Every structure is written in C-alpha cells, then in structure tokens.
Amino acid sequence: MRVLVVDDERRMAELLRRGLTADGLSVDVAHDGTEALWRAGATRYDAIVLDVMMPGLDGVTTCRRLREDDVWSPVLLLTARDAIEDRVAGLDAGADDYLVKPFALPELSARLRALARRGRAERPTVLRVGDLELDPASHRVRRGDVAIDLSPKEYSVLYALMAAPDAVLDRYELLERAWGSEYENRSNIIDVYISYLRQKIDRPFGTDSIQTVRGEGYRIRSAPAPSG
C-alpha cells in the first residue's frame, strides 16, 4: 500500500512517515500543495494524507486541484479544526475522510487501510447538454472551451435542469432542488435565477438552451436553438 503524506511541518511529516512505514505502508512525503500535485500526478497512490493548514495551497484547495486534475486516489484530511463547516468544505472539495488532531497513529493507519479497501473513487458523471458541460466534482461549468462562473444557487438550478435534459421542471421542483426546505412556494425567485442563467450560459454564446414552457415551468433543450 503506497501513501503520500503532505504536511508543511517537516517534523510532523517525518513522524507520520516513520509511523506508517513501521505499520507496513510505503510512504512518500511532500511539504506543500504544489509538490503534492506533482507527486500525485506522477504516481498512483492508494491514499493521500493532506494537512489542511498549509501555507500557499492549503489542504482543501490541494484536494480540489487533485480532483480537477483527475487524480482520484482516496484523500484523508488532517485538521486541527472540528467545525462542521470545515468538514463540509473538505468533503465538498472531494475528500473521502478526515481526522481531527490530535489523533492516534493506529487510527490513521486503520482509516487509510479502510480507504484503500474501497479503492479509488470513480470520476462523477459529467453532465453534458450540447456543448454545455457541468462537472459535479469540481463545480465547473463550461460552454465549449469557455469557463462560466456561477453562484452556488445558479449552479444548483442549472444542475437540476441538466440532470433531466428536455424534461419540463416546474417552479416547485426547481425550488425544492435548489433551496430545499428554505423556499417560499409563491416566490418568483426561480424566474429571477433563470434570467441570471440565461445571461451567463446562453446570451453570450448566441444560443437559447433554457426554454420557458408556459404554464408548466422550464426545461433545458438538448439541441438548443440559436437565439434571435
């Protein structure tokens, strides 16, 4: 089992290397996110241990960059912070597990073995409608070669539409999928966000992929018509 340990504190990195090696693992060490990206791109690791608090590229950013680079080795984040938002940020960035400091080395070894047994995660399915592409792993949206910057809610509405191309989704469905229990059924917020999306994914490209179906809702067409 080959593991990459990434920690800018050299003493800690060496302690982890020695302890995991003594437990039968083959361990490489990187001391920053940039080196981690290079090593993980060149070597197929069974697991990667990332310290969250690193200067430059922190652990969460490094994890996100690994996934963007199509590196799908299981990632375990080491963090001194146990706040829910920190854990959510790490998992949303593509991490598979986390361990809060201080921790016992046997627990780290056991978690790494468990991750290795699961195997590498398969790349999430990229949604494509025509030349519009949405990548759930990295939250990136593109039309052709052009990256499109969306807010979280714009992304959620677009994801719902692209997950069911050509299907009509009413406002209630879109509200539920994008806002969950925080929506107001009589609100026109969906109309507002549809307008935002059209301004970003359609109009600059001279196309009209999001269609209003009068009295029913909205749909994204798999073969969008050129805009007038």
Rank of each mutant, 00 (worst) to 15 (best):
D166S: 11
L127A: 01
L150V: 06
K101G: 04
R142A: 09
V141E: 00
K153M: 13
S151M: 13
I201N: 01
S109H: 12
P136Q: 13
Y172C: 12
L174Y: 02
F103L: 08
Y159L: 08
P106C: 09
I189P: 00
Y159Q: 08
A104M: 13
K101I: 04
D170T: 07
D170V: 09
D166M: 10
P152N: 11
G144S: 12
R171C: 12
N185T: 14
L127T: 01
A163C: 15
R118C: 09
A104V: 12
V141Y: 00
P204F: 09
V157W: 00
A110Q: 15
E184K: 14
R186V: 12
L112F: 07
R117F: 12
R186D: 15
W179S: 01
M162N: 01
V126Y: 03
D166R: 09
R123A: 07
E182V: 11
Y159H: 11
V157F: 06
I194Q: 03
A164L: 08
A164M: 08
Y183N: 06
L175T: 02
A104R: 15
I194P: 01
V141H: 00
E133S: 11
I190Y: 00
A114T: 08
R128N: 04
E133H: 03
V141Q: 00
V141K: 00
A110L: 15
E176D: 15
R143P: 02
S187V: 05
E176F: 11
A160Q: 03
R177G: 02
L134H: 02
E182M: 12
I201F: 06
N185A: 15
P106Y: 09
H139N: 12
D131Y: 03
D170S: 07
K153F: 13
